[in-house]
Every structure is written in structure tokens, then in C-alpha cells.
Design a protein around this nucleic acid. Structure first.
Lengths: 231, 231
DNA sequence: CGCGAGCTTGACGTTGTTCAACTAGAGTGG
DNA sequence: CCACTCTAGTTGAACAACGTCAAGCTCGCG
């Protein structure tokens, strides 16, 4: 799975997370030496909940999901992760175990960086530490929004939230090829796959969205926002 | 509300968060100079979601709750906070706005520390930064557990989780005086106050707990753990 | 052309909310 | 010290939301 020849350079990487801007050229060379490029096919597990977190992952290309695996064997999707997002930060300075799993929703190219490098930079470089904390906190606030969506809204509102999130933050277009299965959508909205289908059917017949195979087009985004607004 | 005379000293404070152990005596003197002691009565708001976060709070005495205020005016309790817990860390290095509110569940004594001090120490002291990240990440993992409880378990399991959390982590005893109202329990478990009553009635008649006024006694903790185990 | 996974649809059952009426207990003023 | 009030808690009945189950469908792929 690993690519021996790295195709990307940290120093010139356009997608890197803000924390890396705090590093010197010398730091970048060290980073480069402690980095791997990995390719994952759609569906493959990128990191496994409970496994020893020896690396922090960075999504260079593709889309992934992070999810919790519960005792009853179900999955709870926490987030859809687009390019530039990091995986595994919550393992930093804890017991170094991934608290969630992640899997590729599309074919992905991932940078895998030694977690010790992260911890060293955090301790030695205040700007780097600040950016890490900022990233963690942004993620926490997003989680709060998701939590409100799940706990306060009915099915229509929850699914509207997912479509808005996909259009606004993930695909950054009203027109996209959907990488999430009915089951993924169900695990993200905490409803049954059958209910996901039913709500999507309703959205289609109300002309809010248009679906052609895997291609989704959001036709009435304002209407979706209204539905999202606590309903 | 503010006490002019401070009754506590940072250096000798037994309850302080682990990050402060990373500070020198000189640092502690600066901390002392940028710190206030506040008293809050039961029910009073300690910090308000959306307000400018000029301070990080620290619960020296008492119990508080952190909660989200939703657009429909409802409250979603994130956590019950016991002595030694900090409030407002998610505002660090973000837009410095509290992403949640907090209120006292019992009369509280709170240390309020200038947020700039926190940001400065984080940048200048690697050990301090590491402890802050560790604290944030521990909290994130707890949130994941809570999220699984809410999304995967039925009412019995969710309420069992709350009782276990109170006994294990908050009151640290099987016998405690309950500071949470039916409504608090409802906002924490995402059920209606009526349903909270119904489940508690069931727990009482099954002799899992004994309730005398505000005093709760957990009689069969193993049984509660079984109920918590995804049911 | 046939197979299978993922998707769709309808009928039905369960869970939990809502509403309304009632009760208990704490605080207040005469 | 007692009536009065107000809030929090309790209880039951009706109802809505959503999940489950079973059957059938579609489409990509060998």
C-alpha cells in the first residue's frame, strides 16, 4: 500500500494544515524524513479505533469518514473529512490510542507522520502548539453543531444538515458525485437506512434535490436551510 | 459576586489542573496576579455561550454543568463538571468566544484566569501546552462516550449512564445528594422530563436505587452497569 | 444473461413525546 | 402557625416519529 517514491513535498504542499506554516525549513526536512505517503482504496480503513496511534494522518487527496465503533458493533459517523484534514489529533498526549476509526469514502492519498514529531514540535514550538489547539477546538465546535443536529432535529432537518455540509464544506459545490452510501448517511444522521431513502424520496419529489445515479444536485438550497433550521 | 480577599493560593492549591504543575514559582506569581475568585449561587450562569471569552474558569468548589443553547431555546447538557475541571478551554486560540454556557448546579467557588495568560504559557511552555492538549483530548473522548450513549441506547441505558457517571466521577460515592433536577437529567439524556420520572420510578421499583428526598443511593450498581451496556 | 449488493416501498410495531390533570413541598405573608 | 402560591415532580392516555421486517426492484459486473 505504501508508495516508495513520495510524490509530494511538505515544503511546497498547498494543502497542508495551518500548523505546518509555523515550522522552519529545517523542521520541514525533519518532517519529510518522518513521513510516509499511503494510498487507500474506497472502503479501506485508514486508522482503527483502539489501535496504537504511532502516526498522525493527513488527507492529501480524497474524502474519508471518521467514526466510532460501538459495543453492539454499529458505527457512528462523527465527520466527513475532506482534503487537508488531519486524523488522529485526539490521540496526542493521551494514551496514544486512536479514539475513533477512519475509512476512505473515495480513493485517498494520505500522509502519515510520526506522532513523536508532532509531540516534539508541540513542546518546542509555541506557534505550532497554538495551531494544534486551534484545530482541535474548531473540530470540537463542529462536533457540538452535529450533536445539536442529531439530538434536536427530526429526520428531515438532520438529512438537510448533511446535504448542506456536503455542498458547503466537502464538495464545495451544489453539484457533486455522492461518495456516501445510504448506510453512511444513516450512520451520520442516526436514522435507519430505510428512513434515509424515504426522506431523500421526499426531497426529490419536492424538487429540493435532483438525483441522477450517483450525481446529486441541490436545487433549492434556501429551502434546505429552512428545513435544517430546527425541524 | 467577586471576593476581594482571595482565600486560595495557586501555588498550594491541591485541586489545580495538571497543566499548572508545569509552571515555575515565578509563573505562579504572575498567575496569582491575573486571577479572580468568584462565588456563584446554585443556578447562576458562570459563562455564557457566545460571550467574549476573556477568562478561563476553574471550578475550585462545587459542581456545575456545561450546556449548549440551541436556536429553539432549548438546552443540551454536555457535561457535569466537578471540582478541578476547567471551563472555556475550547475558546483558546479560536475566536475567543465561549462555544457553550456553564451554570452552577451547587454553590460554587470559581477561579477566573485571564485567557491571555493561558495563551502565553501555551506558547512559551511546551509542558503546559502538552497538558492543555491532553485535557482537551480527554474531554473529547468523554464527549464521544456521551454521544454513543445518547445515540445508541434507549432511555433506561441513558439514564443508567448518568447515574453511573454521577456515582463514579462526580460524587465519587454510591450515596449522594442529587444536584440535578428532573429537567437537568432530561437535558442530559435527551429525553422529556416526564420520561425521566418514569424511568426513575422503574429503577426505584426494581430496587436499583433508593431515593429519599434529594438523597440518592445506588443499591445495585452491577445491575445498572448491565442496563447501561447498550440497552 | 444471471447474480448479488445496495436501494426502495409498504405494513406494522415500538419507543418516547405531548398534553392535561393532579400532587407534594418549599417559600411567603398575614 | 396556617392559608396561599408557585414550582417541581408524577401519572395516565392519546398520538407522532421512527425502526423493523419482508418483499420486490435496479444496476453493475462477471
Amino acid at each position: 500500500m505504501a508508495i516508495n517514491q513520495k510524490s509530494i513535498s511538505c515544503l511546497t504542499c498547498k494543502k497542508k494544515s495551518s500548523c505546518f506554516n509555523e515550522l522552519s525549513k529545517a523542521d520541514h526536512r525533519i518532517l519529510e524524513a518522518n513521513r510516509l505517503e499511503l494510498k487507500f482504496k474506497r472502503g479501506e480503513v485508514i486508522c482503527k479505533q483502539g489501535a496504537f496511534a504511532s502516526n498522525i494522518m493527513f488527507i492529501y487527496k480524497g474524502i474519508a469518514k471518521s467514526y466510532l465503533e460501538t459495543d453492539n458493533g454499529k458505527h457512528v459517523i462523527l465527520n466527513v473529512l475532506s482534503e487537508g484534514r488531519m486524523i488522529g489529533l485526539p490521540a496526542l498526549f493521551s494514551n496514544n490510542v486512536f479514539p475513533y476509526s477512519a475509512a476512505a469514502l473515495e480513493d485517498c492519498i494520505v500522509c502519515s507522520i510520526d506522532i513523536n514529531i508532532f509531540e516534539e514540535y508541540t513542546k518546542s514550538n509555541g506557534g505550532f502548539a497554538a495551531e494544534i489547539i486551534k484545530t482541535l477546538n474548531t473540530c470540537a465546535v463542529n462536533n457540538y453543531d452535529h450533536y445539536i443536529s442529531i439530538t434536536q432535529k427530526k429526520m428531515n432537518g438532520r438529512l438537510a444538515d448533511v446535504f448542506l455540509h456536503l455542498a458547503d464544506n466537502i464538495y464545495k459545490s451544489h453539484h457533486f458525485s455522492m461518495s456516501l452510501s445510504r448506510n453512511d448517511l444513516a450512520e451520520m444522521t442516526q436514522m435507519s437506512p430505510e428512513s434515509v431513502t424515504r426522506v431523500i424520496t421526499r426531497f426529490k419529489s419536492d424538487k429540493l434535490i435532483k438525483v441522477t445515479g450517483k450525481t446529486y444536485e441541490i436545487k433549492k438550497i434556501d429551502e434546505l436551510r429552512k428545513i435544517s433550521y430546527l425541524r
